[in-house]
Amino acid sequence: MLNYIIRRVLLMIPTLVAISVLIFIIIQLPPGDIITSRLQELQAEGQDISEEQIEALRARYNLNDPLHIQYFKWIGGILVGNMGYSVMYGQSVNNLIWERLGFTLLITFSATLLTWLIAFPVGVYSALRQYSVLDYAATLMAFVGLATPNFLLALVLMYLGYEWFGIAVGGLFSPEYASADWSMGKLGDLLAHLWIPAVVIGMGGTAGMVRIMRANLLDELGKPYVTTALAKGLHPIRLVIKYPLRIALNPFISTVGWMLPHLISGAAIIAVVLSLPTTGPLLLDSLKNQDMYLAGSFLLMLSALTVIGTLLSDILLAITDPRIRYE
């Protein structure tokens, strides 16, 4: 087991190096760079910029170095925790990312919790009472949930939130708390706003998850080992928990892998609609504006999280499923 983990971690290193090179090439690919487009903007506004100023800017962003040097400077910075400087925001990438990452984590965590709290019992019930009235109801709800675009749900909830509770929805805080220091009031305000993105983001996932849970469990319930356990005289409820449910959970464990990168990029559209201070819209902006260090750092972070997430779920799977452990 330990060997397996060490082997997998070692394998991660070349993977990440290859990914970082690829990302660097991709962010360099579009013609022009952010300085040129920035200059055009400034000149259009009638500002005059001297050659020296331009040179200084280019030097600051290492744009005069050959490509491979640029790469090493970038990756070297990241290794010591400096992700570079965003031209678009005029701030260091570190500054920009961490606060948003916190909120993203909070929202995604609440949404995931909500998803699990609903999807798990509903999916299990649907499988155990297949074709019952409640199973049909759950199936119908799941399909409606799957077919409703999330941003539409976001708009509806924003409207309802405003109509019923009079809260200025959108964002995570009311204007009076937005720049205030943390207090009980601000926390309450956050919670009053949090449920909308949590419900919106959680909803799409819940519908899918109910279907997956139901299908997985139905699959396992038909397996011969269930008959064996029944024939042993095991109580049906204990049986379901110990055998098929336990095994039906394995596919869920493998979803942990892509939950991590989803934290950052996930639900960008909803974040835009609800004007959430999360990482999604920032990533979108940085890509649109060729803000190379911001975009590059984001992409690298996403890839690293994907790789780490996959490793995590593989390790979890190996712990829960001996068939993988002994392969």
Binding site: Y225, G233, T320
Partner: peptide, 24 residues
């Protein structure tokens, strides 16, 4: 009935591979 299952009457199945749980 559960007492009779396994305690009085027990079974051997055709596919011992799938008749055992793979994770226990």
């Amino acid at each position: 009935m559960r007492q009779i299952r396994g305690g009085d009457i027990s079974m051997i199945f055709q596919e011992p591979m799938t008749a055992f749980s793979p994770v226990h």
